[in-house]
Simulated assay, not measured.
Amino acid sequence: MTPRLAVLAALAVAACDGKPDETPQAATLATVGSATPADLAVDVIDTADGKGRYTAKREGRTTQVTFPLAIAQVAPATFHTGQRLGETAAGVVVMVDEYASRATGGRCTDGTEAFIRVFSLPMRRELMAMPVESCISGIKGAEPRAEWLDDGRFRINGSRSATYRIEGTGTLTKTGEQH
């Protein structure tokens, strides 16, 4: 990453809400073409009002999608990261969303709950939420948890390995390709 791009990326993260980051939230930056502020894409997953909230900033526009989140099982204030795997030209975004497990009765005190989440920006909704690691449910994560492939496809790795194709603004199809 060039020094200019690093500075732009840092400014974009700081500009997400205009104030210092007070709660852990995930931001993934990407550039398209030249490294100008208008080209930066920012993706943030956080919690609000007991639900999950995905915020995407593209070309000066902000899109938010709320989604169900088992808030009793996750502890986003302890640990929370997110990573954008890929995005289609039609605006469907695939994210890895990872939280600390909420300790319940001594279980999972240092555990992780991770999901592959697929969001349609044009439809403003979550299309898929697949757990890929869970201390609470006993799902062992793979490394990498998921991979972006070509032509709007992504693969989820681990015990639930599968490849999916994204079509248009909101159709997911599980392909016959298993890994």
Rank of each mutant, 00 (worst) to 15 (best):
T171K: 15
T173M: 12
G152D: 07
A26R: 06
G50K: 11
D43F: 06
D39A: 15
R153K: 15
E167L: 15
F79R: 09
R58P: 01
A142D: 00
E59T: 10
K140R: 13
R61C: 08
D110Y: 11
R124D: 04
L85P: 00
L11T: 15
G18H: 05
K19W: 07
E22N: 12
E87C: 05
V94S: 03
G18P: 05
A38L: 08
L29A: 09
L5T: 11
E87P: 01
A14R: 13
L127I: 08
Y54D: 07
Y164W: 15
L172A: 11
E87L: 09
A100F: 06
D21M: 14
T55G: 08
A72P: 02
G176C: 01
P3Y: 08
S134T: 03
Y164H: 13
S34E: 14
R155W: 04
V132I: 15
V13F: 03
R4M: 08
R58F: 08
E59P: 01
V32G: 14
Q25M: 10
A56S: 14
D151P: 01
E98H: 01
A129K: 13
V65F: 07
G33S: 05
L29T: 09
C108M: 07
G33A: 07
G111Q: 07
D17F: 09
L40D: 05
R58W: 07
S137K: 13
E177K: 10
V132P: 02
E126H: 06
G82H: 01
E113Q: 11
R107A: 15
K51S: 10
A27E: 15
G18T: 05
V96S: 03
A56E: 14
L127C: 06
G111W: 07
D17W: 09
D21G: 11
G18R: 04
A30P: 05
Q73C: 06
E113P: 01
A89P: 11
W148T: 06
A15N: 13
A89I: 09
E133T: 07
S161M: 07
S101E: 10
V42F: 02
G158C: 04
D150S: 13
P76Q: 07
A9Q: 07
G33D: 08
R61Y: 09
S137L: 11
T36E: 14
T112C: 01
I156K: 02
K174N: 00
L69K: 04
V96T: 08
Q25F: 09
G158N: 04
R160G: 10
E126L: 14
G60T: 09
C108N: 08
A75I: 03
L172H: 08
T36N: 12
V32R: 15
V118E: 01
I139R: 00
A100Y: 05
V94W: 04
A103N: 11
A100I: 06
A48G: 05
T2G: 14
I166K: 02
T23V: 14
L121D: 02
A41W: 13
E59A: 15
I166F: 02
G33Q: 05
A14D: 12
P24H: 12
T2N: 10
S34C: 10
V44I: 13
A142K: 00
G33H: 04
F119C: 03
K19C: 06
V44D: 11
Q73T: 11
S120D: 01
I116Y: 01
